[in-house]
């Protein structure tokens, strides 16, 4: 287990910018890292995502507007804010999941290691191979535990012994000991927390670069939540993780950076649009935020 993790850690640099290929086009490879700007906190890492004035519309109304910030490599970035502020909308832009919603349109630029995810020649299937996703409600396939894990590697045509791939993914998600004797049973027989860890294991099995988690613990009890948070901290050194959460303690416990979203009403006060108020190191957001709205929210005065 430990050996395995160290081995994977060594792979990490290779999985970064130079190897990325979303298409035949090979443009400017990486956004410039901002080294040493904030010496007190840990050094700025290379950006895995750079959001530049991202606006997402459903139909004509913007759901989120003018979002600009960078998401660092092998960090946990939390998106927090009240309901309806567009956190889920934004996270779904990062692996082109919004393509599945008719009428959704993304403006601005979403750069992934410097590549525009919404360029005309980008294949969303290629994007999602690299950027995995875990959803709010556990959504195992109505198949066996084994087949749930093997689904991704099979559709991607991954080489190697499938039994090993499945075992590695389940061990990685700290689920192996609980399910090793019933790999062939239906995944629906697991508890909710186990199902969610299965979904994480399933995402890990395809060896992604980034894992997006859209409120992964909102349907789970505190014990299962704790297990998933431990898992995220375990995975942090190898993967870039973006998590949407309503649970501020969770954001404070697990994330390195936090983006605080809020809702703005338009002139006639009918349409709600999400904006980012503040994006910074999590410690700063929770202890010394620069915006009074952030302070009001994180101290529980509103929202």
């Amino acid at each position: 287990m430990t050996d395995e993790r160290q081995e994977r850690q060594r792979e990490v640099p290779e999985r970064g910018a130079p190897g990325v290929r979303l298409d035949v086009h090979h443009g400017d490879s990486a956004a410039p890292g901002v080294e040493g700007v904030e010496p007190k906190l840990r050094a700025q890492r290379e950006a895995v995502f750079s959001l530049k004035e991202v606006t997402v519309r459903y139909g004509t109304k913007p759901a989120v507007r003018d979002i600009t910030f960078d998401i660092g490599e092998t960090e946990i970035t939390a998106l927090i804010g009240p309901s309806g502020c567009g956190k889920s909308t934004l996270i779904r832009c990062l692996n082109r999941m919004n393509d599945l919603i008719p009428g959704a349109a993304v403006g601005g630029r979403v750069l992934y290691h410097g590549h525009d995810l919404y360029a005309a020649d980008v294949d969303p299937v290629e994007v999602r191979k690299r950027i995995g996703m875990v959803f709010q409600k556990p959504n195992p396939f109505p198949k066996s535990i084994y087949d749930n894990i093997a689904f991704g590697p099979r559709v991607l045509g991954m080489e190697g012994d499938m039994d090993e791939i499945v075992e590695r993914a389940l061990r990685h998600a700290v689920l192996w000991d609980e399910v090793k004797d019933r790999l062939k049973t239906n995944a629906f027989g697991m508890s909710g927390g186990q199902q969610q860890r299965l979904c994480i294991a399933r995402a890990l099995a395809v060896e992604p670069d980034v894992i997006l988690m859209d409120e992964p613990c909102s349907a789970l009890d505190p014990i299962s939540t704790g297990k998933i948070e431990d898992l995220m901290l375990d995975l942090e050194n190898e993967y870039s993780i973006v998590i949407v959460t309503h649970n501020m303690q969770q954001a404070a416990r697990v994330s390195d950076k936090t983006a605080f979203f809020t809702v703005e009403l338009d002139e006639d006060e009918k349409h709600r649009t999400g904006r980012v108020v503040e994006f910074d190191h999590t410690e700063k957001i929770f202890t010394n935020p620069s915006d009074p709205r952030t302070e009001a929210y994180v101290t529980g005065k509103v929202g």
């Binding site: 692996n95 999941m97 599945l100 299937v125 290629e126 999602r128 191979k129 995995g132 996703m133 875990v134 959803f135 409600k137 959504n139 195992p140 396939f141 109505p142 689904f151 991704g152 559709v155 991607l156 979904c199 399933r202 995402a203 395809v206």
Partner: peptide, 14 residues
């Protein structure tokens, strides 16, 4: 359920 399709697309399925 749409969530099953999303799960499968999220793993890079065509």
């Amino acid at each position: 359920p749409q969530s099953l399709r999303e799960g499968a697309f999220g793993l890079g399925g065509s």
